[in-house]
Design a protein around this nucleic acid. Structure first.
Length: 681
RNA sequence: GCCGAGGUAGCUCAGCUGGUUAGAGCGCAGGAUUCAUAAUCCUGAGGUCGGCAGUUCAAGCCUGCCUCUCGGUACCA
């Protein structure tokens, strides 16, 4: 394995439109922190970078909904996030933000360099613009007639019927899907990163040279690369973001996917300025190992797009590994910010004061490394009570209490070793290599288990050696046994340091020692005989059922609130006139037939009796209803909507559906049994 | 639909390029023990490795089909 001079470790930038929850922690921040702490313990030159991602449309929407500025939103969440990370002991060397001056400068310059060197495609084109919706239309928001096969429902980027790739201007009779109007041509200029030009390189680099990446990451990359890469716009018409730094680009900002990862570099620069260091080696020296910790939603950006950007720039190194984790569920349900189904870090820290390490431990032990995992409060309690309290806490307490009891807290001498002692010592020595191997291959759960096995070894050693029995008969033997027990305890402070830094600090307090370095792990001479340890105290407390119930109740409250749905409903749409309303002809109807549209996930083809006639409607409800269950259902149907071809089937109308927060659909129907054809108004 | 990752003991997960009676932790049962937050230590029960077919002397691991979960993507008048 290559010996690197320094390590640059990044953790995905949390998006500053909400606080951080356990899913973020288990996926990204706990593993990256463990890795960073481990490497520092080995004396490596480590830079651990974090920061908030503060641009993008969702933040502007949230701000609008709350009647505040985007800056207000990001200030609020950046503050909460930063503080809670600190409290959990996530040991960032720098945690900054993408609204910083440094970042705007860095991201702007990055763009400028690519621009000036011709690494970007500039397209000053006439694009379709919807005057009613007042925006430029993305390819997919335009439909029209395919010039090749005359399919009238071709999209701006592709015709589904003949499969040809198109551009919006190719279409005959273009229509905006937002308003249905004829879009006008309006001039706009944008810049694109030609990912296709980097495709061969990326294929070689990832598929051939990085076969050791995690299967989920590698597979996802392969999937993207196999389907072909296309130029991707790096700018857009928006006011919130990093302004495009060239003349004539007013009203345009960098797309957030382009600016956010540069944040890692900006934050490094900020750190270096503060520390009086040179930032460049951390990003440009071949002897630097760059590692991106991310969740699976970020794989394509960190494995394909960002590397393509770095390579286009030319001065930067590429990541050595991108350990992407899967997702963490909570009590068998997807974690969701909008449904408030989450354990929020800032709330946990209040509900469980001084228990940062319990959360760190449980999340590390249950990390979704290979597949999605489930966090349950019951498991949280069990791991605390059965593992932290019973195995680790108990062993430390036993050895410290015995030392107090027999020797008044003075470490006894190590005498002659029995074969049994030698075995235990050999086992102790073997743990270092195992933990290292696991950590260096990003197998954090395994590493933690190995660390825990040291505490198990300690318990077993004491149980077998039984010093409390020998105390009256063989004083010298007891001295040796307790010396070994204390050396094991001292080793625990080293091996657990990456995982549970608050606990190891407590352990050192009990042992009355200062910090060791990682290379001392496995040693039998960590505490000299004659050294005096402190009065022991308990490092973990049992968590009672009541505390767990309280957390469960909190979650149930969220569930109830969601059910009553007075949660956050979308704001009302623009006012319309009565005349606008009566244009719609809505009728009560009855579903006569229903079948799934082949090769789709959501679409059902329905035959509906409208009273007026029987007609075919294609409806996107297959995820909420099975075809056989809805035959005979009363519905409301809009019958004077212009027909539209969907997947080759002409849909003549639209079934009215109510949709809740989680996307579930329900029919809207008359409460009295009126039969088909009654008008709805 | 297409692409990717998963489906291994009650629970959470290991299982390297196919090779003897499939492993760990927790939980459970029985026993030992008392220095310790009734904590610990030992022993044991418990699995047709998602299903079906195939390749092979040999398959949890390879191939084909099917099925379930998660993610990406298409579609959702």
């Amino acid at each position: 394995m290559k010996d690197f001079k320094r390590y640059t470790i990044t953790s995905a930038l949390p998006y500053a439109n909400g606080p951080v929850h356990i899913g973020h922690l288990a996926g990204v921040y706990i593993p990256s922190d463990i890795y960073a702490r481990y490497l520092r313990g080995k004396g490596k030159d480590v830079l651990f970078v974090g920061g908030s991602d503060e641009h993008g449309v969702p933040i502007t929407i949230k701000a609008k909904n709350e009647g505040v500025t985007p800056q207000d939103i990001v200030d609020r969440y950046h503050g909460i996030i930063k503080k809670s990370f600190e409290a959990l002991g996530i040991s960032f060397d720098v945690y900054s933000r993408t609204t910083s001056e440094t970042h705007h400068k860095t991201a702007g310059n990055f763009f400028k360099k690519l621009y000036e060197e011709g690494k970007l495609i500039e397209k000053s084109t006439e694009q379709y613009y919807d005057e009613e919706a007042q925006q430029f239309l993305a390819d997919r928001y335009i439909i029209g007639t395919c010039p090749h096969c005359n399919n009238e429902e071709a999209y701006g980027d592709q015709c589904e019927s003949c499969g040809t790739s198109l551009s919006p201007m190719d279409l005959k009779n273009p229509k905006s899907t937002l308003s249905g109007n004829l879009p006008i041509r309006k001039k706009t200029k944008h810049w694109y990163l030609p990912l296709d030009q980097h495709e061969d390189f990326l294929k070689q680099w990832i598929l051939e040279e990085n076969k050791d990446w995690k299967p989920n990451v590698y597979g996802q990359c392969k999937s993207w690369l196999d389907s072909g890469l296309h130029p991707r716009a790096v700018s857009r018409d928006l006011s919130w973001g990093v302004p495009v730094p060239i003349d004539g680009a007013e009203g345009k900002v960098l797309y957030v996917w382009f600016d956010a990862p540069i944040g890692y570099i900006s934050n490094t620069i900020e750190w270096a300025e503060k520390e009086g260091k040179d930032w460049e080696p951390y990003w440009k020296d071949k002897d630097t190992k760059l590692v991106h910790f991310i969740g699976k939603d970020n794989i394509v950006f960190h494995c394909i797009i960002f590397p393509a950007m770095l390579r286009a720039h030319g001065e930067y190194i590429l990541p050595d590994n991108v350990p992407g984790n899967e997702f963490l569920n909570l009590e068998n349900d997807k974690i969701s910010t909008s449904r408030n189904w989450a354990v929020w870090l800032h709330e946990y820290l209040v509900d469980f004061p001084e228990k940062q390490d319990v959360l760190r431990y449980v999340l590390a032990a249950n990390m979704p490394e290979a597949k999605d995992n489930d966090f349950t409060w019951k498991d949280f309690q069990a791991r605390n009570n059965n593992e932290l309290v019973a195995i680790l806490g108990n062993f430390v307490n036993r050895s410290a209490v015995l030392t107090q009891k027999y020797y008044n807290g003075t470490v006894p001498v190590l005498g002659e070793l029995s074969d049994y002692d030698k075995n235990a010592i050999a086992e102790l020595a073997s743990i270092k290599g195992k933990v290292e191997k696991s950590l260096e291959t990003f197998r954090f759960r395994e590493a933690l288990k190995e660390a825990m096995s040291l505490a198990r070894l300690g318990n077993k050693y004491l149980a077998d050696a039984e010093p409390w029995k020998l105390a009256k008969t063989d004083a010298a033997r007891v001295e040796t046994i307790l010396n070994i027990a204390l050396q094991i305890t001292a080793n625990l402070t080293i091996v657990f340091e990456p995982f549970m830094p608050f606990t190891t600090a407590k352990l050192r307090k009990i042992l009355n020692v200062s910090a060791y370095n990682w290379e001392q792990l496995g040693g039998m001479d960590l505490i000299p005989s004659g050294h005096t340890i402190a009065t022991p105290f308990l490092i973990f407390d049992k968590i009672e059922d009541a505390e767990i119930e309280a957390q469960m109740n909190k979650l149930m409250e969220s569930k109830k609130l969601n059910a009553t749905a007075n949660a956050k409903s979308n704001p009302a749409k623009e006012e319309i006139t009565f005349d606008d309303f009566v244009k719609m002809d809505i009728r009560t109807g009855t579903i006569l037939e229903a079948e799934k549209v082949p090769k789709t996930k959501k679409l059902l083809k329905l035959l509906v009796d409208t009273g007026v006639d029987k007609r075919t409607v294609v409806s996107g409800i297959a995820e909420s209803y099975k075809p056989e269950d809805i035959i005979g259902k009363k519905v409301s149907i809009l019958i004077n909507l212009a027909p539209r071809k969907i997947k080759g089937i002409e849909s003549q109308g639209m079934i009215l559906m109510a949709e809740n927060e989680s996307g579930e659909l329900g029919f809207v129907a008359c409460e009295k049994d009126f039969g088909s054809g009654s008008e709805v108004r």
